[in-house]
Design a protein around this nucleic acid. Structure first.
Length: 622
DNA sequence: GTAGGGTTAG
């Protein structure tokens, strides 16, 4: 432009400023700002708004002062002015740049419109300055400026963050009264706000009422379901989105993948992986992390590692996903190695990365290492242990049989222990058969959480194992009186892309007769190989024969028998169980893996067991 | 000509 002797004007600068924000070059933006002041255009409303936007974008970036290859001097060739004016220009530019201040520009503007207000509010909201954003919304009222749909879409995420559905609903009401509720942006912000407040029904209602839906509103509702644990519903909506001919985007895949990870639906995860590759999303960090997690959770740690190793850049989330993956598969050595590599790579671990490390130590009984990391976490990384860290450490000490140490540890936490933390110790008391401590621990639990179902069941089982049947029954009676029930143990297996679910003693499967026959035959074979049913795992006061029968129909055994009769010889079998694998099933499955010459992979609620040639990857420590 | 929405690791 300058080559042609044309000066930029008020129509030019908004674009130039947008470009400065886009290339993330603060110095360049500042020099453009200087140029604007010199031309006297800083009093122009549109230019002022664009300046606000640019500085708001820079607030969230850690921009180092150096210009990357662009050292254009925007002041060259501009009209010279008198010395006083020049000084004023420099002063104004300096003040604005030193403060890097959206507020400063805002205050210096002679006239502000709703866009000016919205830009500053959005900037504050996106940079975590929630109170300031809300203060400005209130301030708008004082200057007779009406919040519009843009204002609301900045405010809604704040109430999502605050988990304040009441305030969020007020905004929703305001949106309806002003007919902003059909706005796509408001729609997805409302879906997200309600989902964050665990009010998924309200999210669905908003979604159903939208007249039209774009890919973002679809993603919002899918993510809302997945984040609230409604995995099947999330998958159903994902299919509906495809049927509605809305093309999935990068975010669609990272939103839906955790559903496959949680449900262990490997075939769906693989299908999505295919889509991802064909769609050219294979290098997206979010997607790759979700794939690493999905393959690890579906039992295929090799595929998870392969994807991780092929990633060009690893962030904290992807490191943590692969560390956790190895931890769940009992590969403590790999997990700890990767943690060191992450540190060497200059990626700072966060609280979750340490949970992954404790999980790794937990499944390998590495108590000394865990203590070292626990202290390191506070001293070197300044991360204060939170409930989850305490829970992981308590679990680890408990599994290792260091019950008294775990008791001391929980008693000395700097935050009040919860029922679930004591429950991890109670579970360890059952495994290590310490009735006395179990009674002490359960009293602590009932003090905090008298309706803790898990604790009643565990105590009942602990009494049963000690053959104190009356006390065991008392616990069951308590539960009945209080009307609390525990979700039944179940196992599920995917065969030819269909998931088959079994509960203990299940006869609902169409092939149940063949399943029971096959299982009977398998158990007879392994008894000849030396398997002895462990009737200590039966918590009912019945005859030995009856106990054997109850053991016989545990859900994981039924799923396994079904897997064996319905898949070709030699193929691996993957089973998921919602609670810990029982001791007797663990022993039986080791024998079965040998006689059927198959790899059997079982995911329980805390880890993976890979059974092969009569051995399990957990080394019988779980 | 300026402003706003959805995502990954427990």
């Amino acid at each position: 432009m300058r080559g042609f002797g044309i000066y930029p004007d008020d129509k030019t600068f908004p674009f130039v400023l947008k470009a400065c924000a886009f290339v993330k070059n603060l110095r360049l933006g500042e020099s453009v700002h200087g140029c604007i002041i010199r031309l006297g255009l800083d009093f122009d409303l549109f230019t002022g708004n664009a300046l606000l936007n640019m500085y708001a974008k820079f607030q969230s970036l850690e921009v180092n002062g150096g210009c990357k290859g662009c050292t254009l001097n925007m002041l060259d060739g501009m009209p010279k002015s008198n010395e006083f004016h020049e000084k004023l220009v420099q002063e104004k530019a300096k003040t604005a740049s030193q403060l890097n201040s959206v507020t400063k520009v805002f205050e210096m503007m002679p006239k502000r419109d709703v866009v000016s207000w919205n830009t500053v509010i959005a900037g504050n909201a996106q940079n975590g300055m929630y109170e300031e954003a809300l203060r400005m919304v209130r301030e708008m009222g004082n200057v007779n400026m009406k919040p519009d749909s843009y204002t609301l879409s900045s405010v809604l995420p704040i109430f999502a963050e605050y988990v304040d559905a009441k305030k969020g609903k007020e905004i929703h009401g305001y949106a309806i009264r002003h007919r902003f509720d059909s706005d796509w942006y408001i729609g997805s912000s409302l879906i997200d706000m309600y989902a964050n407040c665990a009010r998924i029904e309200d999210s669905c209602r908003v979604f159903n009422q939208l007249p039209q839906r774009d890919s973002i509103s679809w993603n919002s509702i899918i993510a809302a379901c997945v984040q609230n644990g409604l995995f099947d519903k999330g998958l159903k909506l994902f299919r509906q989105m495809l049927m509605a001919k809305v093309k999935p985007r990068d975010v669609s895949f990272s939103s839906i993948m955790p559903a496959c990870a949680h449900l262990t639906t490997l075939h769906l995860g693989k299908q999505l992986h295919g889509y991802i590759i064909r769609g050219g999303f294979g290098d997206n960090v979010y997607i790759c992390s979700s794939l690493v997690d999905m393959y690890a959770k579906c039992g295929n740690i090799k595929a998870a590692r392969w994807i991780f190793d092929k990633m060009e850049h690893h962030d904290m989330v992807s490191w943590t996903a692969i560390i956790m993956g190895h931890a769940l598969h009992g590969h403590a050595h790999d997990a700890l190695m990767l943690f060191k590599e992450m540190e060497m790579d200059g990626v700072k671990p966060n609280n979750l990365s340490f949970i992954a490390v404790f999980t790794a130590c937990s499944h390998a009984g590495l108590t000394n290492e865990a203590w070292r990391y626990f202290n390191n976490m506070t001293q070197n990384y300044g991360i204060r242990p939170c409930l989850e860290h305490y829970a992981a450490m308590a679990d680890l000490l408990g599994r290792a049989g260091k019950l008294e140490q775990a008791y001391e540890f929980i008693s000395n936490m700097h935050i009040a222990p919860t029922g679930s933390i004591w429950s991890t110790l109670l579970s360890a008391c059952r495994v290590h058969k310490n009735l006395e401590l179990a009674e002490k621990v359960s009293n602590e639990i009932f003090k905090i959480d008298p309706e803790n179902v898990g604790a009643y069941v565990l105590m009942s089982n602990i009494y049963a194992a000690a053959r104190r049947w009356k006390d065991a029954a008392k616990m069951r009676i308590f539960m009945k009186k209080k009307g609390i029930r525990k979700a039944p143990a179940c196992s599920w297996i995917e065969v030819k892309n269909v998931t088959h679910t079994f509960i203990s003693g299940d006869k609902s499967h169409p092939l149940y007769v063949r399943i029971y026959e096959a299982l009977k035959e398998l158990l007879e074979q392994i008894e000849r190989e030396g398997y002895i049913p462990d009737t200590n795992e039966v918590f009912h006061d019945v005859e030995e024969e009856q106990k054997k029968h109850l053991l016989f129909s545990h859900s994981e055994k039924l799923a396994l028998a079904f897997g064996i009769i319905s898949t070709p010889a030699g193929t691996s079998i993957r089973i998921t169980k919602n609670i810990r694998v029982c001791m007797d099933c663990h022993t039986a499955i080791k024998f079965i893996s040998k006689i059927v010459e198959r790899e059997i992979i079982i995911r329980d609620n805390s880890r993976f067991h890979h059974f092969k040639d009569g051995k399990c990857s957990c080394g019988d420590y779980w």
